[in-house]
């Protein structure tokens, strides 16, 4: 009962959205990349590096905006490196992504130590954080106000980005090209558009989204950088993208499902359940989710076939 009552509380919703925010950002990036025919395994590393650079940038300039820019710059730089190796030098995308992740794991700790002298966290420097937002009027409405108001600026932005990316993919010329190049790159090439340019743009958009997801972790969720703080969220975002069939809305919903279990594990830690088991939950949920999704899709294909031959 205590678990249920905790789940159906405003605090839980609040936490749910907090853990969902980085997943939504990054999985939106994964959607754009996947649609252009690129699987970007480097999301994890991009998030981590952007998380650190956001903290360092804001701490040294004293400006949140400069922090945001340095985080984005870092994410875009790594994305450009990924794109250059994968698109221009034709290196395998799995290798490129893994290289970015390995690099980021070492680079962030190295930078952290140079700047702060510590290897674990950036607690000794004062990072700026993205503010929480109270929505005027709505915040005073009972229930609704508590549900909708008082979240982090980036949380709102994450949900807005779902709509923006939906519009980008389905309503604009560049979105059409991204979807086309992912499905048949020869189609794009034959009408005289550069496949590399379209994919490069998709990877950069993905870089922005993953950077925002990373920065939320160190400048919203927490107020400092902790080594390896991304903890698999990049990969979970890829899973959300797969389960959401690379559609923005479906992927957002999948990200919310995964975040739900992440939130749940936070609550369960307070109970007497072994913490190792609890920490496993979000990942186990990811696997179960993917299995369920695949089963449902196979059935859907069967039904579709049966219908078209009936």
């Amino acid at each position: 009962m205590t678990v249920l009552s905790t789940i159906f509380s405003f605090q839980f919703v609040d936490m749910w959205l907090r853990v969902a925010t980085p997943l939504i950002f990054t999985s939106m990036g994964a959607v754009v990349c996947e649609r252009s025919g690129v699987v970007n395994l480097g999301l994890e590393g991009i998030m981590l590096s952007a998380a650190l650079m956001g903290v360092l940038g804001s701490a040294f300039s004293g400006s949140l905006f400069i922090g945001l820019l340095s985080g984005l710059a870092m994410g875009l730089f790594l994305s450009a490196v990924f794109a250059y190796f994968h698109l221009v030098l034709k290196a395998n995308e799995v290798l490129c992504g893994t290289a970015i992740n390995t690099f980021a794991g070492g680079f962030t700790v190295f930078m952290l130590e140079i700047v702060t002298g510590e290897k674990g966290t950036s607690a000794s420097i004062k990072s700026m954080a993205f503010p929480t937002v109270d929505i005027p009027i709505i915040q005073h409405i009972p229930v609704l106000g508590q549900l909708l108001s008082g979240h982090n600026l980036l949380t709102y932005f994450a949900f807005i980005m779902v709509g923006v990316l939906w519009y980008l993919l389905y309503k604009t010329p560049i979105g059409l090209r991204i979807r086309a190049v992912g499905e048949n790159e020869h189609a794009i090439h034959s009408v005289g558009i550069s496949v590399t340019k379209v994919r490069f743009l998709a990877i950069m958009i993905c870089g922005v989204m993953a950077s925002l997801g990373g920065m939320y972790l160190s400048m919203g969720y927490l107020n400092m950088f902790v080594r390896d703080m991304v903890a698999g969220r990049g990969f979970i975002s890829l899973a959300a993208n797969a389960m959401g069939h690379a559609t923005p809305v479906g992927t957002m919903l999948s990200a919310l499902v995964f975040a739900f279990f992440d939130g749940l594990s936070n609550i369960l830690q307070a109970l007497k359940i072994p913490s190792e088991f609890v920490q496993m939950l979000p990942y186990a949920a990811t696997i179960v989710g993917l299995v369920l999704y695949s089963i449902q899709r196979i059935n859907a294909v069967k039904r579709h076939k049966a219908k078209s031959f009936a």
Binding site: K171, P173, L176, R179, A180, E183, N184, A187
Partner: peptide, 27 residues
């Protein structure tokens, strides 16, 4: 000889690919 088409897109989308007419930001 091998078609240069995108199967999941519509006839219109395949045709306008690369020469999209715009209305504001949208196609």
């Amino acid at each position: 000889q091998h078609f240069m088409l995108v199967p999941s897109l519509t006839v219109t989308e395949n045709i306008i690919l690369g020469i999209e007419m715009r209305k504001g930001l949208s196609i």
